[in-house]
C-alpha cells in the first residue's frame, strides 16, 4: 500500500489531512434536493430566511416546543402546524416522499425524523377529508352499538 501511495506522489500525513478536511467540509451543511423534488410553498414568504431555515429549523422547533407544550406560549411563526400548512400540499403523501416537502429533503439527506409518528403529515385544510369523517362516524356508531345493552350497576359507555 505505501509503495502505491509514494508512486502516486502522496504521503500518509497529507492523505490523513485530506480526509479530515473532507469530513469537516460536510459538517453543518444541508444539501437541498433538486428543485423537482421540492413542492412549492404555498405562502409568499417563509418566516425566516431560507438558509436559516435550512440550517436551524430543527433547533427552532425543538427550542420552542417546550415553551408551547409546557406553558402554552405559542409562537405562530414557529409552529410545527404552520410549517406543514404552508409547505405540504393537501394531496401530498409521505409514503411517496417526492410529493411531500419535508420527506423529500429528509430522504435526500438520509436524515430520519420522527415528527410524523405523532404529528399529522398533512396540512389543516386537508385533514377533514370526506372519507375520513365517514370512517369516524362509523367507528363511533359501531362502538355505541356494542355497549347498548349494558345493564349492570356501573356501566361504562365509551365511544372512541
Amino acid at each position: 500500500m505505501p509503495s502505491v501511495l509514494t508512486r502516486a506522489g502522496l504521503s500518509l500525513p497529507a492523505l490523513l489531512a485530506g480526509l479530515v478536511f473532507f469530513a469537516l467540509s460536510g459538517c453543518g451543511k444541508v444539501e437541498p434536493p433538486p428543485a423537482s423534488l421540492l413542492a412549492e410553498a404555498r405562502g409568499d414568504q417563509c418566516v425566516e430566511p431560507t438558509d436559516v431555515m435550512r440550517r436551524e429549523h430543527m433547533q427552532i422547533l425543538m427550542h420552542e416546543r417546550d415553551e408551547a407544550k409546557r406553558y402554552g406560549r405559542r409562537n405562530p411563526d414557529h409552529s410545527f402546524v404552520g410549517c406543514v400548512d404552508c409547505h405540504v400540499s393537501p394531496t401530498a403523501n409521505r409514503e411517496d416522499p417526492s410529493t411531500h416537502f419535508c420527506m423529500a429533503c429528509h430522504e435526500f439527506n438520509a436524515v430520519r425524523m420522527d415528527c410524523f409518528q405523532c404529528h399529522t403529515d398533512r396540512p389543516s385544510d386537508a385533514a377533514p377529508a370526506s372519507h375520513r369523517n365517514v370512517d369516524l362516524h362509523e367507528s363511533i356508531e359501531r362502538h355505541l352499538a356494542a355497549h347498548a345493552d349494558a345493564s349492570t350497576n356501573a356501566v361504562e359507555v365509551s365511544i372512541p
Binding site: 370512517d135 369516524l136 367507528s139 363511533i140 359501531r142 362502538h143 356494542a146 349494558a150 350497576n153 356501573a154 356501566v155 361504562e156 359507555v157 365509551s158 365511544i159 372512541p160
Partner: peptide, 30 residues
Amino acid sequence: CVRACHEENGVRSLGRPETDAQWIRKVNLT
C-alpha cells in the same frame, strides 16, 4: 360529549374495544 371529544381530537376506534383510546366516557351509576 363523548362523540364531540373524540371527533374534535381525532380519536377513533381501531375495532378493538379493549385497547381503543378513551378520553372521556359516560358512566351510569345506580
